[in-house]
């Protein structure tokens, strides 16, 4: 028994030390930096000021945030539309293929997402796999403009983030109680009504979890718009990077990071509030 509690203490303290040094301290440094000023000779210096936060309230930065939200939202929607039936079919599958199919969703995670994005370039570019194939079979004569536009950015984002939508949905749908669906049928509900009234509300936690897991990274993966979109617009991630590296304005870059983090925290809070005490959770 004594061993047990030492082990518990040990593993808990690892978690706490980890959180303290790799999450709390760095974040504290960013918060402090966001309240300081800078000059040509010092990256950060006194006095304390809230000027950086006032500067964020500028039409251009708000437009950058708005565009990031729009792109991330669109990506989330596409992932949901593609991912839901996908997860549903796999979850309801009885065959032995099921394990293999789940493995196939996870395998791409074994390669860095940056490398997978570079491989998308090889697929989409003018002399890439798709265009070479279509031109080879004589279907088109000039290459399709598949890369360096917003479509390419969306393809890249959806490709990279789809598993984050599928996996929470999968676990959610797998735990669906079949008896509830049978009961709905027995009571005369057709397929659409069953889906709308029973399946959809019961899988709502999975939908929301998936949406958040897709939306948050989609806001900040700056290399996908850079590599696939031809760096033609500035997104939240690029904005922060540029403030730190190009403008050498660390305090302002920190302030933008904090604002972004607060916005995303608000989304999490809304999710937390919306699932709290709901009856659907009891049913699961």
């Amino acid at each position: 028994m004594k061993n047990d509690s030492t082990f518990k203490l040990f593993s808990l303290s690892i978690v706490w030390v980890w959180l303290l040094f790799f999450s709390l301290v760095p974040y504290g440094l960013v918060i402090i930096a966001s309240l300081l000023s800078h000059s040509e000779n010092n990256l950060i210096q006194l006095p304390f000021t809230i000027k950086n936060y006032i500067d964020v309230n500028n039409i251009i930065y708000l437009r950058i945030l708005e565009k990031s939200f729009y792109l991330a939202g669109l990506c989330t929607l596409i992932c949901l539309v593609l991912g839901y039936p996908f997860a549903y079919i796999i979850a309801r599958m009885k065959s032995s293929f099921k394990g293999l199919l789940i493995l196939l969703i996870i395998i791409p995670f074994w390669t860095s997402s940056l490398i997978r994005t570079y491989s998308m370039i090889a697929i989409l570019k003018s002399k890439g796999i798709i265009n070479s194939f279509l031109m080879g079979i004589g279907l088109i004569h000039t290459p399709l403009p598949l890369i360096f536009n917003n479509t390419a950015v969306l393809i890249g984002l959806v490709y990279n983030l789809l598993p984050f939508m599928v996996l929470p949905l999968l676990t959610n749908i797998e735990r669906l109680d079949n008896r509830l669906i049978d009961a709905a049928r027995d009571l005369g509900a057709n397929r659409l009504t069953t889906f709308r009234k029973i399946i959809l509300p019961l899988t709502m936690p999975g939908i929301i979890a998936g949406c958040i897991l897709v939306f948050l990274p989609a806001m900040t993966i700056f290399y996908i718009p850079d590599l696939l979109g031809g760096a033609k617009s500035v997104l939240a991630g690029n904005l922060i990077q540029n403030q730190f590296l190009i403008s050498q304005n660390w305090p302002f870059g920190s302030a933008i990071s904090i604002v972004l983090a607060l916005l995303l925290a608000m989304l999490l809070l809304i999710y937390w509030k919306s699932t709290r005490g709901k009856k659907e959770r009891d049913l699961l």
């Binding site: 040509e40 251009i60 033609k232 617009s233 500035v234 540029n242 190009i246």
Partner: peptide, 20 residues
């Protein structure tokens, strides 16, 4: 060029990329 001018470049660079 001085940091103040670099900040001007950076501001217009962002404006340029955001104008479509």
């Amino acid at each position: 060029i001085p940091d103040s001018a670099l900040a001007v470049y950076e501001k217009y660079w962002e404006e340029l990329k955001m104008s479509e």
